[in-house]
Design a protein around this nucleic acid. Structure first.
Lengths: 209, 209
DNA sequence: CCCTATATAAACTGCACAGTTCAGTTTTTT
DNA sequence: AAAAAACTGAACTGTGCAGTTTATATAGGG
């Protein structure tokens, strides 16, 4: 009656392997990463690596899953969901922009897109555990604000999607197409403010802000 | 004194090779495409292929460049840049959405992102010859409309970027993350109308629409 | 009719990399 | 300290694929 919660073998180097895999996969993508590189980066022999993860695809999926969880924990961007939409949204916009302009955001996005043929579930899972959660929280906030008479929205789903997209203006294409790597606070603030102003012009009431 | 404008050898099968390469690269990406597949798809022997394009990377860049030109020719989305922003923008939004939700748009985007490490210029060149052109035309239109008193915009660059992003709401993430493949006219119209309404709420004057 | 251009198919080379094996070492458990 | 489990390094296998070579075929020009 051995209660084995984890189907994977346990040993000292488990986390170590995942960490190395994370580094290399995020840097080089699935094809670009060689198992030898991963083993080296993890400071582990190839045999050990294979004793934990019987093939490269499984290792990759494991890393991706772990990344999604990590993503969830970073979703503290809505803490300040208090009264005033102008304040709350400005804060949310800044957090969102910072996240998808970060190294993490860039790499995860890149891997999702690049590997979408080989791993169709990858993009979906990432979406579910990342952006979709933020979206849901956003909609909750909208509904509260509507009740308070601070917002006026017919289609909350669309509004949430529009807000997220407004946050990508300018910076996201620049990042995705490799035109610019780093983004200053001023650039982020310009886009965040622009997003909130445009959003509130459409959905704000006089009582808001 | 042989005036050779093209550094690449020209012959009967030149276009034929490019066409096959286009098909396979767009379908499978750079890594995913094998030269044998390309030769087969082009109806040409591998030796012939290599006599035109001495290596795979060069062939790929050639295809990408051709795609960018093709992109330019499709930029007739602004034909109706006449008086009323409400009409013109609704038309522009629909065209833009249709374009980047198309098979073409999806594949080019995917290849740009996936290959951005191997070909850093690829994304930049695509951006320059595609989105950036649309953006420039958009800004011209804004300036005209501002002179006519139909729009009121402080930061035209940001406004153009916001408009483009608004057009991506909902549909673009769904496409990129493989959640949805085909998009109905109703879905496109919903997003296009939403984009224009939000945009005009912020930047429209009473005289417009 | 031969000469040269260009095309073709198919076999071949070389390399990178996933996955395996194994003899030997280190760590953990009892 | 002995047994069991985990780890190592290095060599090895097999495969897929970029790029080359070769022997052969077709077509137009002098």
């Amino acid at each position: 009656m051995n209660v084995q919660t984890e189907p994977v073998k346990q040993g000292r180097k488990h986390a170590q392997v995942l960490e190395g895999a994370r580094t290399v996969f995020l840097r080089d993508g699935f094809e670009g990463a060689s198992v030898d590189d991963i083993a080296k980066s993890a400071g582990v022999s190839k045999a050990t690596l294979y004793s934990y993860f019987p093939d490269k695809r499984i290792l990759f999926m494991e890393v991706a899953k772990a990344e999604c969880l990590r993503q969830e924990e970073m979703t503290d961007m809505m803490v300040e969901m208090n009264s005033d939409p102008n304040v709350a949204l400005r804060h949310a916009a800044t957090s969102m922009i910072r996240l998808f302009v970060s190294n993490f955001g860039k790499h995860v996005f890149r891997v999702c897109v690049a590997e979408s043929d080989r791993f169709p579930e990858l993009g979906r899972e990432f979406w579910e555990s990342g952006p979709a959660r933020v979206r849901a929280r956003m909609i909750d906030f909208f509904n509260d604000a509507i009740k308070r008479g601070q917002l006026e929205i017919e289609d909350c789903d669309l509004a949430a999607d529009q807000f997220a997209e407004l946050c990508k203006a300018d910076l996201f294409p620049k990042m995705v197409f490799g035109i610019q790597e780093e983004f200053s606070d001023a650039e982020v603030a310009r886009v965040a403010n622009g997003a909130v102003d445009t959003f509130m012009a459409r959905y704000g009431t006089k009582r808001a802000g």
